[in-house]
Design a protein around this nucleic acid. Structure first.
Lengths: 213, 213
DNA sequence: CTACTATATGGACCGTTGGTCAAGTTGTCT
DNA sequence: AGACAACTTGACCAACGGTCCATATAGTAG
C-alpha cells in the first residue's frame, strides 16, 4: 500500500488556504454562522472546491480538528511523562485532562462547529467515534481508567469525562476564559474516582505542555 | 385557579394534537428527520399553526420536554424522599440521577431533537440555561452538591453530571437500552465525589414516576 | 515548445428546511 | 346577532449543504 498519486500543487495550496480561512472565520464568528460558502469566499476559492477537498462541512471541520489535535496526540502516544507513557495511570489521566482542556479552550468554536456540522448532516448520524480525534482520546483515557480502576465502566467514564467538552454550558465557560474552572472540576472528578493514590484533592496543575489561551 | 380565556378552545385542541403528533413521530424516526412540516401534517394542521403555537422548532421541542419532565420536577420539589425534600443530600442526588436517567432513556429522541433544534437556530445561540427543565435540574443538583461538598465547584460539577445526557455516545447507549450502564456510571461518579456517606453501589431506582421503556 | 491527460475549479443549480405573512375563518363575549 | 380578537393556512422566502459539469490548469512525455 504505497503512496499513490500526490496532490497537485495548486490543490495543496487551496487546501491550506481553506483551512486557514476556516480557522480565522471560526475565531471571529459564531460557529453556526460560518457557512461553507463564506469559508470558500474567504479562502478565495469556489464553493465546489471546498467540497471537493473535504467532502462535506463536517469533513472540513474534522480536518481542522485533526490538525489542531496532532501535537497532543503525539504527546500522549510517545511524549515525555506524565503526558506520555511512563507515568502511573492517575498522573497520566490528570495530565491528559489538563492538556485537553487547554487545547479545547483554544478551539471552542471549532468543536462546536464540528458538532453542529455532524448534527446537521442529512446523512445517517455520524457517531462521534467516527471522529478519529475523539476516538484516540477516548481510547487513551479509557485504557488508563481501566488500569487504575478495573472495577469501573472505563469506556463510559471516559465518555463522561471527555464529553464535557461537548457540553454547551461548559463550552461557554471556556469561551469566557474560565478554562481553569473546568480543569479543576475535571481534576476533582478524576482524583475522586481514581481513589487514594495520587489524591491531591485539588491544587497544582503544573507540567502541562501548552499553556492557557 | 380559573384560568383566563387566554387560549381559545380550538387552539388548545390543536396544541395537544401537535404535541402528540410530534411525540409520536419522534418515537418512530430519527430526530433530525422529523421536520416541522411533517409534525404539522401528522397533527392535521397547517405549518403556520405550529409556529404560531410554539414560536419555533426549538419551542416545540421545549414544550414537549417540559411536559415530559413535569412529573419529575414536581417529585423533586415536593415529593416523598429520597427524591423529594427530607433525605440527606447524597441520597437525593443519587435518587435524582437515577430518575433523570430513567426519564432520559424514554426520551432520547426528544433530547437530541431539541439539541439539534437549538443548534440550527438562525437566531442568537440559545444558551441551554434558557431551557427551564435544564435550569431546574441544574439548580437542584447544584444546590445539593454545594451542601454535601462545599469545597467543590458545585455549579460546574452539576453541569458535568447532567450534561452527560447531551453526550452523543451516551445517548446511543440509552438508545440501545443500556440505561443501566449510565445510571451505574453516574452513581460511581457521584458516590466518589460525595465521599463516604451513602455508598449504595447499585440497585433499585424505585419511587420514580414512570417506569422504564 | 507542444500535445495530452488526469486533476482541479467554480458557480449555477437543486432540494430541503425553518420561518414569515396577508388574507380568510371561527370562537367568544356582549 | 354583531363585533372583534384570536386563530388558521399554505404560498412564499432566504439560506444552507451539497451536486454537477463545462472549463481551466498542473504536470509530463515527446
Amino acid at each position: 500500500m504505497g503512496e499513490q498519486r500526490r496532490e497537485r500543487a495548486d490543490a495543496a495550496r487551496n487546501r491550506r488556504a481553506i483551512l486557514e480561512a476556516a480557522e480565522e472565520l471560526l475565531r471571529r464568528h459564531r460557529p453556526d454562522e460560518v457557512s461553507v460558502e463564506q469559508v470558500a469566499a474567504a479562502a478565495g476559492v469556489g464553493k465546489g472546491t471546498v467540497f471537493h477537498r473535504f467532502g462535506s462541512r463536517a469533513g472540513l471541520m474534522l480536518a481542522l480538528m485533526e490538525e489542531r489535535a496532532q501535537e497532543l496526540s503525539e504527546a500522549i502516544a510517545a511524549g515525555p511523562p506524565p503526558l506520555g507513557p511512563g507515568a502511573p495511570p492517575h498522573e497520566r489521566i490528570l495530565a491528559f485532562l489538563d492538556a485537553m482542556v487547554a487545547l479545547a479552550s483554544r478551539n471552542v468554536g471549532l468543536i462546536t462547529a464540528h458538532e453542529h456540522a455532524v448534527a446537521t448532516q442529512r446523512n445517517a448520524a455520524g457517531p462521534r467515534e467516527a471522529n478519529p480525534v475523539y476516538r484516540r482520546w477516548h481510547d487513551h483515557v479509557s485504557e488508563l481508567i481501566a488500569r487504575a480502576r478495573p472495577d469501573l465502566d472505563a469506556a463510559l467514564v471516559a465518555h463522561l469525562l471527555i464529553g464535557s467538552l461537548h457540553n454547551e454550558p461548559v463550552a461557554r465557560l471556556l469561551l469566557d476564559g474560565e478554562s481553569g474552572r473546568l480543569a479543576a472540576g475535571l481534576r476533582s472528578l478524576a482524583t475522586s474516582l481514581l481513589g487514594p493514590g495520587s489524591a491531591r484533592s485539588m491544587g497544582d496543575q503544573r507540567s502541562v505542555p501548552g499553556g492557557r489561551s
